[in-house]
Design a protein around this nucleic acid. Sequence first.
DNA 1: CAAATATAATAGTATTACTATCATATTATA
DNA 2: TATAATATGATAGTAATACTATTATATTTG
Lengths: 225, 225
Amino acid sequence: MERLFHSVRITINDKLYVKDPESSNLGKRIVEESILMINDIGFESFTFKKLGQKIGSNESSIYRYFENKHKLLLYLASWYWGWLEYQLVFATNSIPNANTKLERAIEIMTQATEIDLAFTHINEILLNKIVINEYSKSYLTKEVDQENKEGYFVIYKRLVNRMSLMINEVNPDYPYSSSLASTIIEGALHQHFLMDHFSSLTSCNKKTTPTEYFKHLVFNTLNIK
Amino acid sequence: MERLFHSVRITINDKLYVKDPESSNLGKRIVEESILMINDIGFESFTFKKLGQKIGSNESSIYRYFENKHKLLLYLASWYWGWLEYQLVFATNSIPNANTKLERAIEIMTQATEIDLAFTHINEILLNKIVINEYSKSYLTKEVDQENKEGYFVIYKRLVNRMSLMINEVNPDYPYSSSLASTIIEGALHQHFLMDHFSSLTSCNKKTTPTEYFKHLVFNTLNIK
DNA sequence: CAAATATAATAGTATTACTATCATATTATA
DNA sequence: TATAATATGATAGTAATACTATTATATTTG
């Protein structure tokens, strides 16, 4: 299975980069090391100048790949959601039973990424942490409507919609499938954040996982016992 | 009732300001106009220099009230959550029935702020919008643990805990009350954001409110019909 | 009215987020 | 293999940001 993942390529909106980072060694190093660095010092403190120093390259060279760090974040996030989408589709498409399928989907969407499937230069564990800590900043902006029109969030939207459809399959009469889908995906990120920084605001911990919480939430809400 | 609200004063951690903005006319203008301005141009573009120009004051004078715009955001958010907490307690404390009480609590936490109760210089409608669009940025930082220790998030935490207790009153056996409480509060902000910018990711709209969605979610999850 | 305090004005600094230009590698192709 | 094309690196420069420091001028208070 790992081998299979190796050969998958996640297609990302080409407006998010100036030059495709997958097309060169430097590009891959930019992506690889930016993940480590954003995870390390946080998105606010992260700059192209610092990244250049770290990878022994030049600030101006990084600008030839990404217009600015905001677009780099959107690129990384798209990659992450694309990767999750792939896992979701791969793991659920052969499941005939709607309940079992939704259950598996919730697992995939709410689990902490624990295994690095070694997608060459991308560390999925750290990328998952970046998404938990920084993803909101990519859309909580004044430019969100314009950027949404440009298609910067398509993968994320497709993912929420897939979840929504699976919810509908389980209970076609449930009237809030889109909201429930977005609540699971965004809420899972939030619960993971709370586990790390505000433990009194979550019931989740090492024993009780967000997955358990969301499964209970969803299946009770849908009136499936 | 409006008159009553007038006399309420929300107590905010005094580490969040250098000089209490409630203590002078300039301080109040800073708070008042910063709300308008952040709402208008967004937190990223907002600067103390611009604010000074708008209120006919000087950048350096604003720094005598707030160390930086991050602390100003924390101050505004604390004020907002304190104000919501007041409304929550006021509206629910006399309700004896646990279900009715939780129902009323969900209404208060998930409704869009529509009426400006004219808390003198603070526009609650705009402040609610700021919280929807900017609040996450106040805690998605590398300094969150330190700032949490300093008590910058106490009001928010108290509010989530109040919700959690009300959930427990309805169903003492429900094992995820803290997570459900944080899901309602954070999730409500998120659903409002989606209504404004990603309508395909939410089932909520003018007719179907987030309040309706969350009531259904909570009472079904708690197995109360 | 003097003293204390608050506010305003101005200047200055380090950093950020770029853009532009030119030099030098590396790679492709004729 | 020479040359052209392209990629990368080095350096410089700019406007804005996020402050700090100092001094001047109001305003308030005792």
